[in-house]
């Protein structure tokens, strides 16, 4: 029963995500690969698409995976799944557990979770970067010069924009720049 599986998987993901959408990526990747719904490469290509469309990344990826696996209904069920834990927990807090955020144990729990989330995000980023520049497996590496060059150029452009023009480039801008660079560098 694909709808139930989608709902439960994304419910679990919604329940264990702290610190915004990026913290969710490793969890979604694990679920997607475990069920054979997509490869890691397909998944992160889609994350690139998500970064250029509006809305929360969690809902976007849930809708995408759900739609791929079970059509429109699959998309709806997966997004409801990812949203439901937040919905229920916030309702409980505003109506019954008013002092939740001030609770000492909640604070202690979150304090412990924080470094884990940062480690999950940074390790995901590191692994993605390693794969983009050419890591295949422990015994195989074939340098992808284009991805490597694009990453280097993005770092330079980002720093220039920040230090020289005092501007923070948005995710959409960075995605667009990288897409153009990808095409141009592939053609020359």
């Amino acid at each position: 029963m694909i709808y139930l599986t989608l709902f439960l998987e994304f419910f679990k993901i919604g329940l264990f995500t702290f610190g915004g959408g990026f913290g969710m990526l490793p969890l979604i990747e694990e679920a997607v690969i475990a069920h054979g719904w997509a490869t890691a490469e397909q998944f992160y290509n889609f994350v690139g698409v998500c970064e250029s469309t509006p809305g929360p990344i969690a809902v976007n990826t849930a809708t995408y995976i759900g739609t791929m696996q079970g059509g429109l209904l699959g998309g709806i069920v997966a997004s409801l799944g990812v949203v439901m834990p937040s919905f229920i927990i916030i309702l409980l807090i505003v109506s019954v557990l008013k002092n939740f955020a001030e609770n000492r144990f909640v604070k202690a729990f979150l304090k412990g979770v924080k470094p884990v989330v940062v480690a999950l995000i940074l390790s995901t980023g590191t692994i993605l970067l390693a794969k983009a520049v050419g890591y295949v497996s422990l015994t195989e590496f074939s340098t992808n010069w284009i991805s490597t060059a694009v990453f280097a150029i993005l770092c330079i452009v980002w720093l220039l924009a920040k230090k020289v023009w005092n501007k923070k480039l948005s995710a959409v801008t960075l995605i667009l720049i990288s897409a153009v660079l990808g095409i141009v560098l592939s053609l020359i």
Partner: peptide, 17 residues
């Protein structure tokens, strides 16, 4: 384009991290 976008996704995630 996606050969480049892959790097941007890694960049955005590393930056958020």
């Amino acid at each position: 384009a996606f050969v480049g976008i892959k790097s941007a996704v890694a960049f955005l995630i590393l930056k958020a991290g």
